[in-house]
Design a protein around this nucleic acid. Structure first.
Length: 572
RNA sequence: GGCGAGGUAGCUCAGUUGGUUAGAGCACACGACUCAUAAUCGUGGGGUCGAGAGUUCAAGUCUCUCUCUCGCCA
């Protein structure tokens, strides 16, 4: 039994994520977690909400709520939706937790001890009316070059010239519109990533089996231009983790907080501590996942994320870990995803384009979405969601191939032999061939799951469903029953056992349907079918089963047209 | 403008270190079957692998040029 640590990129707090966000991290991570649990491994699957930073403050202000209350509320909303999608986190934590405060401050202290922090005094625009420093993107004004009136603090979108906020004519805050701005000196901490560059590169180079997408992004940041840059890790905000050196005050940094991208990945660790706290377990329980000096030396750590998160996970976070000089677990395999596009364009949170997680669940159960998203995961390139494709995939794969198979077997048995596994007859050559074929395919499927080849795994699973139909079609028990009922009984006995095996194999993709299949077969035996022949006799003669409700319904043309129109425009 | 990723059957996509007639699913056509959610199974048609040139005994797979799409950055 292996020990497997899995983290999904943590979603930002200010709103509900769309399907593109889901398929890029949480969902494939869940697939992998469920598969590894099914194989009997010890799994720790962690996710959380990423709660700090200016966007959270602004979203809270817009909602008319204190930011802490807003985040608590939105965390619950996201947690509920995650449950709706059956995301099987061992813990869904919060980057604003006390655990993360302490751990983030701890890391900062260790980095300072190692001489990897430098203090920099810089000038920034302060909005007197907003009572805050304004990041570049929150300042607009007239471009001194082209006269464009909505130039941002860092660059003019019209003439594309790079700007300094102080260059702008009539600068104003995009938060309040206030022009009551001034330049103030402020001091910030920078992490000396440059001095860790070679160490990071050596570490990246040691990861021969990582996807090209992952290593190429990391290499680009390491080598592009002047190479890896030192990075500011503090901000002049109120909402965040107060800057401290371990548990000590950091002179000159009073009232400042750590930058959200500094504390967010540390939450992976802190979240595991939150899990231990919630379980009433001692620190050793989470440390054995994260500290190689406290039992984590045999842990395999997998991260899942969209490609936009790769630089932070290949460089920034490892810089924090390596720089601390402490024996924390580094990621072993990083699985990154491209983007999912929506019907000819991009999903857009700001424009409300596409399907958001809550909307998806309001029109169809999670299994439908899980199946489509995972079987079309943007692994090697960006991929595209269209309603036609969704409708066809769901109707064909889930309703026709799998759902109907369960129907035809169970209903035929009840009609001809009753609602217990029939006892007569022996397995013959056809059954032996099926068992052999199934054994091969299950191995192929498992291999894809282990290497996290999500689309391939879904294709293998579908092929496994198909051979059930092929077998039935060739065996034709509905014909055989007329001349040799005992032989037909053997066929159906096998087919009922096949349903149980399919439930086990399918559970990582479609957990609800799998549970329904298992319940219909009247068993709780989820043992992975390493021995297919044995698995085909797991439900013994005389074992009671029942006909389940249809596992999947079909999406009609009218529904498809309706949804296509409904989700094309603006989310209100 | 720079960098990166891509342009493979009507659609969504696979195609390992270059090597026999380029694959899958869906869609389409025909056939089989009738247990089942008008479901299933089989057979078949369909691609000059974005364009052009080059390297090679051999290129979707390497090199160059061009073109289109999409990102990121300045």
């Amino acid at each position: 039994m292996a020990r497997i640590l899995i983290t999904s990129a943590i979603p930002y707090i200010n709103g509900i994520k769309h399907l593109g966000n889901l398929v890029g991290s949480q969902l494939p991570a869940d697939l992998f977690a469920r598969y590894n649990r099914a194989r009997g491994h010890e799994v720790m699957f962690i996710c959380a909400t990423d709660e700090h930073g200016t966007p959270a403050e602004l979203a809270a202000a817009k909602a008319g709520k204190p930011v802490a209350a807003y985040c608590a509320e939105m965390h619950d909303v996201q947690a509920e939706i995650a449950r709706g999608f059956r995301l099987s986190f061992d813990h869904f934590g919060r980057s604003s937790s006390q655990r993360n405060h302490l751990l983030t401050q701890h890391f900062a202290g260790k980095l300072a001890e190692a001489g990897l922090i430098r203090e920099v005094e810089e000038s920034q625009i302060y909005s007197i009316d907003d009572h805050r420093f304004l990041p570049d993107r929150y300042i607009e004004g007239t471009c001194p070059n082209c006269g464009y009136e909505s130039a941002r603090g860092d660059q003019c979108d019209n003439c594309t010239k790079q700007l300094d906020p102080t260059d702008l004519i009539n600068p104003h805050s995009t938060i309040s519109g206030s022009t009551n701005l001034e330049v103030r000196k402020t001091k910030h901490l920078y992490l000396r990533q440059r001095s860790l560059r070679d160490k990071l590169e050596a570490w990246i180079d040691s990861k021969k089996d990582w996807p090209i997408l992952t290593t190429s992004i990391a290499k680009k940041w390491l080598n592009d231009g002047d190479g890896l840059q030192d990075r500011g890790i503090t901000r002049d905000l109120h909402w965040g983790i107060p800057v401290k050196k371990g548990d000590q005050i950091w002179p000159g940094m009073e009232g400042k907080v750590f930058y959200v991208w500094f504390d967010a990945p540390i939450e992976y660790i802190a979240c595991t501590a939150e899990w231990a706290d919630a379980q009433g377990l001692p620190d050793a329980a989470w440390q054995r996942w994260w500290r190689t000096d406290m039992g984590a030396q045999d842990v395999s750590y997998y991260q899942f994320m969209g490609k936009d998160n790769v630089p932070f996970h290949t460089l920034s976070f490892p810089a924090t870990i390596l720089g601390s000089g402490e024996p924390w677990k580094l990621v072993d395999y990083l699985k990154s995803f491209n983007y999912l596009n929506y019907d000819g364009g991009q999903f857009s949170t700001s424009r409300g384009r596409g399907v958001f997680m809550d909307q998806a669940l309001s029109i169809l159960p999670s299994d439908y979405w899980r199946w489509w998203l995972l079987s079309h995961a943007p692994e090697s390139a960006d991929s595209e969601f269209t309603w036609e494709n969704f409708q066809v995939s769901v109707n064909k794969d889930l309703a026709d191939v799998l759902g109907n198979l369960v129907s035809r077997v169970t209903k035929f048995c009840v009609a001809k032999f009753g609602s217990e596994v029939p006892s007569a007859g022996e397995f013959g050559e056809q059954e032996a061939r099926l068992i052999e074929d199934l054994g091969t395919r299950i191995k192929d499927y498992a291999a894809c799951m282990e290497t996290m080849e999500v689309r391939k795994a879904s294709a293998e699973l579908r092929a496994i469903w198909v051979i059930g139909n092929e077998y039935l079609q060739a065996a034709a028990p509905w014909t055989v029953v007329k001349t040799d009922p005992e032989r037909a009984q053997a066929m159906i006995r096998l087919s009922l056992n096949l349903i149980r095996v399919y439930a086990i194999l399918s559970a990582p993709f479609i957990p609800d349907a799998a549970a329904a299949m298992m319940a219909a077969m009247g068993t709780e035996d989820w043992t992975w079918p390493d021995d297919v022949a044995a698995a085909m006799t797991a439900l013994p003669a005389g074992h009671a089963f029942r006909v389940p409700e249809n596992l999947f319904r079909k999406i009609t043309d009218e529904e498809r047209a309706d949804w296509q129109q409904r989700f094309a425009g603006i989310r209100t």
